[in-house]
């Protein structure tokens, strides 16, 4: 065992002439709390899409643990514990909150292939789904369609669905984006309470959150890794100040 949850080697992606990911060598340690930061359009979401298999890389390799998953279909990577959330909530909007999470658990357990028994007969799955909603403050809205929820609440459903898959490697794409400050405490709390054995990579623009949670930080600029290090190293790095932290001050 390499002790790595996830690794990319010389990972590159181009859309036509536009090089969106360039030669990314990245290591996510087992149990990591790792932040991926960078200006808008740096290619952070693209990196998640590559790693999870939404996009096929132009070149380079992806390893999940010791296994090369570069060409593995998305669904199989999920079965191996690689789970992501979406920067812009991607939920089953017309379905209820509880249904969103129950569907997810049904997939995890493989019961969603069952054509015969009614879904309601698997009560344990529903109980489990409901139990996930409670700590996120979603229980009162369990039976409402997701589309009726405030966007901040939808972000919480997004998290609940990721957790419902019992991830081993969790990729959070700007989990706090769109969450009102009154609720972001719940979110931070939730991320901090995640089991230690889950390796977490999170993309975030909120520096307070990044420095509070992350043990390591990677800075991505124009599709390439600019620098990687501990929060202290990143905070003290002049290049980072220049391209990223400096720029954030304008916004």
């Amino acid at each position: 065992m390499s002790g790595l949850a996830l690794e990319t080697r010389a990972l590159s992606k181009a859309f036509g002439a536009l090089a969106v990911s360039q030669d990314i060598n990245f290591k996510l340690e087992a149990g990591a709390r790792h932040a991926l930061i960078g200006p808008n359009g740096a290619g952070k979401t693209t990196f998640v899409n590559l790693v999870t298999g939404v996009f096929a890389p132009t070149s380079g390799r992806i390893f999940l643990g010791d296994e090369d998953v570069t060409t593995m279909p998305q669904a199989r990577r999920v079965k191996r514990g690689l789970v992501r959330t979406f920067q812009i909530s991607a939920l089953f909007r017309k379905l209820t909150v509880l249904e969103n999470v129950t569907l997810t658990i049904s997939e995890r357990e493989g019961v969603a292939n069952d054509l015969f028994r009614p879904a309601g007969a698997r009560r344990a799955l529903i109980e489990e789904a409901y139990s996930l909603l409670e700590p996120l403050g979603l229980a009162a809205e369990a039976l409402r369609p997701v589309s009726e929820l405030a966007y901040g609440r939808q972000r919480m459903v997004e998290i609940a669905m990721a957790l419902a898959l019992k991830p081993k490697v969790l990729l959070l794409d700007e989990p706090a984006a769109g969450v009102p400050t009154t609720e972001s405490a719940t979110l931070v709390d939730m991320i901090e309470k995640l089991p230690k054995d889950i390796a977490v990579l999170f993309i975030e623009h909120d520096m307070e959150l990044v420095f509070r949670v992350a043990k390591r930080i990677t800075v991505l600029v124009q599709g390439a890794v600019l620098v990687e290090g501990t929060p202290a190293q990143i905070a003290g790095d002049p290049r980072v100040r220049e391209v990223y932290l400096g720029e954030r001050k304008h916004t």
């Binding site: 979406f86 991607a90 089953f92 909007r93 569907l103 049904s106 969603a112 054509l115 009614p118 309601g120």
Partner: peptide
């Protein structure tokens, strides 16, 4: 029977958001 089964419910997931279905390993 089909639409009330877990299989049937997963169909509504495909209708509502196919990207999410991929992301939950369906």
């Amino acid at each position: 029977n089909i639409v009330e089964s877990p299989f049937g419910r997963s169909l509504t997931g495909i209708r509502e958001n196919v990207n999410r279905m991929h992301a939950i390993g369906a």
